[in-house]
Every structure is written in C-alpha cells, then in structure tokens.
Design a protein around this nucleic acid. Structure first.
Lengths: 224, 224
DNA sequence: GTCTATACGGTGATAGAC
DNA sequence: GTCTATCACCGTATAGAC
C-alpha cells in the first residue's frame, strides 16, 4: 500500500462507504477503522468525533450530489432542450458512479433536517432567502421561464413547470433510491440492472421530449 | 385515555412513528416507550426484543406499501389506460396518507437486504422463483403484454415497457422520498407542498398519456 | 400487566507507551 | 502518528416486587 496516500483521505473514503451503507446511527467507528485498515483511536486523532467525521463526509456528498444539478438548472446560456438533455445525461452518469448517494442523502436529511439543512443550503444558493420577494426559487427561475415562454409561443405543450421538473428529477434519481425493490420487481441481477440504468438516459430524454414537444417530430426514429 | 385500546396496538403505532423517523439503528426503545406513554420494560413484555418489534412494524409497512401496487399491476381485467390511471391515483393517495413510508422501506431494505428480502417476497408473489422459466417477472407480465400489444397494433408509441413502468412508479414515489430536498428546491412550505402533491396525480396521468399515446388527442383541454 | 432496579454488552472517546 | 488499554456512558434486555 502506498503510504503517500494521505491517511485522512483513506479514512474519509472508508467512512463514506460505512455511513452510506448503515447511516449515521447504524455506523460503528470500529467498522470504519476496519474498513480503513487502521486503529479505532486513529479515527479520533484525525477527526475528533463521530459527528465531525460524519459532517465532513456528508458535506462532500451533498456537494457531489447537488452541484451538477444546480449548475445545469441555473445555467443562463442553455436552451431548454439542451438543458434537459444535459441534466439527464450528467445526472445519470453521476449516479452510476455513486449509486448509494441519493438514498444516503435523503435518509439523513429526513431523519435530522435541522442538523443538515444548512449544509444543503451552502450548495443551493438562493434557497436561504425567505424574504419572499420572489415567488419562486431563483434557482429554477431560468428553467421555469423558458418553459413558460415555450408555452406562450406555442413551441411547448402545457405543463405545470414545477411538476415537470420534479418528474424529470424523479425519473433520474428514483431508480437508484429504490434499487433493491426495483431489482426485485423486474427480476434483474446486479449487472443486468446496471445495463438497464445505462440505457435509461436516452429513454428519459425521449419521454421528456414527448411530454413537452409532442406536436413536433421525435428526434430519433423508433428504437424498438 | 380509553383502556380498551389494546396496548400492543398503541405500542405498534408508536414504534412505527419512531422507526420511520429514525430508522432501526437510530431508534431508541426509550423513545418508543415515551411515545406510547408506557414503561420501557413493557415493550419487552409485548414484543420480546427490538428486532421482533421492528420486524412486526416493517412487515405491516411493506404490506401497505406493496399490496395496492402489486394488485393493480397484476389485475388481469384492467385495460391499459385504466390500469395506469388506477395505479397513479391509488398510489398517490396511499402515500399522502403515509408520507414517510417509502423512504423508510427503501432505507432499511438497502442497509440490510438479506434480513428483509423475505418479508418483501411474501407480498410480491412470483419474485421468488429463480427458475428463469419466464424471462420477465410474472407480476409485470400482463402490464408489459398490454403495452407490447398496443405497440404492435399501432395504438401505443414505442417505449421500453420496463423503463416506462419504472418511470410511472418514479414519478409517483420520488416526491415523497425526496420530500425535504424537493421542498427546499421549490421553496415550498409544508402545507404548500401537500397541495402540490395532491395536484400531482392528474399531472402524472397527463404525462404518461403523452408518452404512450402522443398521436391521440389529449383527454382534457389545456389546464394552465 | 405494569412498574423499579439492575445486569450486561457494546460504543464513543481518551490516556499514555512507543 | 499509531498502537493497546481503559474509562464513562448508554442501550437492550431481564429480574422481581406489586
């Protein structure tokens, strides 16, 4: 093993795996130590407490999970079509690389909102302002505006923009959150399900296109 | 307080709330006792161990979560359109009544698949047979068959049936799993988000219709 | 059936040698 | 920086009075 690999990084990755597997309450410092191949006391040397270690991991994970999402949703230079395709593609790829991420984030956020909400807000600019001088989240303003414009000029079908965006996110994320249950339902093995997810990107793009641009010709011909 | 209310039922409901809030690892027997308004020792009198209590709760929750889903997916007498609308309507309603259910189920199933998979299989007939004499889950066979028929006779657009069904489930369930994050993203208060979810049923129905029946006229006129 | 008291094991955290 | 040994506490579970 390369000793040049910083020990604190090794610990962090081990902790990430254990926390994602078992959650904060279920994780054991001993298990993290084993996974990192070091002693339990060293954990406390690098990260003073379990809570501190957890927050370090969670902060990074939130960043990985939210930054691509937020960036693409807000980007002022993307057209509506490109924004949607970019979002779906980039998100599925991120999640294929970190399959356990979304469930972990939702789990902890849900069981302890007060403790973690500020960590989320650090990566979601604009949500903090409760001043209500804007009716909608500024993060979605551009996206929603494009959909509204499209509906006005007839290039888009009628949708509730927020419901539409939520549907897009749902189709991308839920297959990872519900993985064990869906695998059971579809009777798919581990590798088989991975392939299924990899094919999902273009399928979602097609669905979104039909919802929003039904009156136009499909971009691709039939594929089945 | 009415003493006729069976104590074991009161305990069960208290345990359900605490387990859903904190997960198995995070739940404390003391907290459950407080929530039930009784002594900690009485928990062990009615349910010998934490594990036993948890399994009782989890078995019921899985049933509530899966039985409507499975029933509608398998029902041999529903047309394709009615099956979809029934599924979405019944599912959103179930989840509005039990908002914490899906995250709880996925969480525990994911952190300890081996321990709970058999509880799921009890309520999902057919998944157990690994004999592979059918290529697909028998539970989805009818549904998938209807979609295939529709594609063959031209009444349906081309979709991957499994991807389509997964998308339907995703749009229904994810808004509940990701509740805290979505609320932040959309800047919605608790009641506001409930209203948003209540309106979601017809929106999803419209989306599914556009995906699968795009060439037909929409059932309703524009609503926005 | 419900309580108080307690046994028992495990867990986070620290002290101190090396 | 990394280890062994140990502490203080907490959580599950049980014993036993009423």
């Amino acid at each position: 093993m390369n000793k040049d690999n910083q020990t604190d990084q090794i610990i962090l990755e081990a902790a990430r795996r254990v926390f994602q597997r078992s959650g904060y309450g279920g994780a054991r410092m001993q298990e993290i130590a084993n996974e990192a191949g070091i002693n339990k006391a060293s954990l406390h040397y690098y990260y003073r407490s379990k809570e501190k270690l957890f927050q370090t991991v969670y902060r990074q994970d939130i960043k990985v999970f939210l930054v691509p999402l937020v960036g693409i949703l807000r980007d002022p230079f993307l057209t509506l079509e490109v924004r949607m395709r970019t979002f779906v593609g980039s998100y599925i790829k991120t999640l294929l690389k970190n399959p356990g991420l979304p469930l972990f984030i939702m789990q902890e956020l849900s069981s302890n909102p007060g403790r973690l909400i500020s960590l989320v807000e650090d990566h979601v600019p604009g949500v903090r302002s409760r001043s209500a001088d804007e009716e909608e989240s500024p993060m979605l303003a551009v996206f929603i505006g494009q959909i509204r414009n499209g509906m006005d000029d007839g290039s888009c079908n009628k949708v509730d923009p927020e419901q539409f965006i939520l549907s897009m996110i749902s189709m991308c994320v839920f297959p990872f959150v519900g993985r064990p249950l869906i695998r059971l339902l579809l009777k798919k093995g581990e590798q088989e399900y991975r392939d299924f997810l990899a094919r999902r990107e273009e399928e979602i793009n097609e669905y979104l296109h039909r919802i929003l641009f039904r009156n136009h010709q499909p971009i691709d011909g039939p594929r089945y």
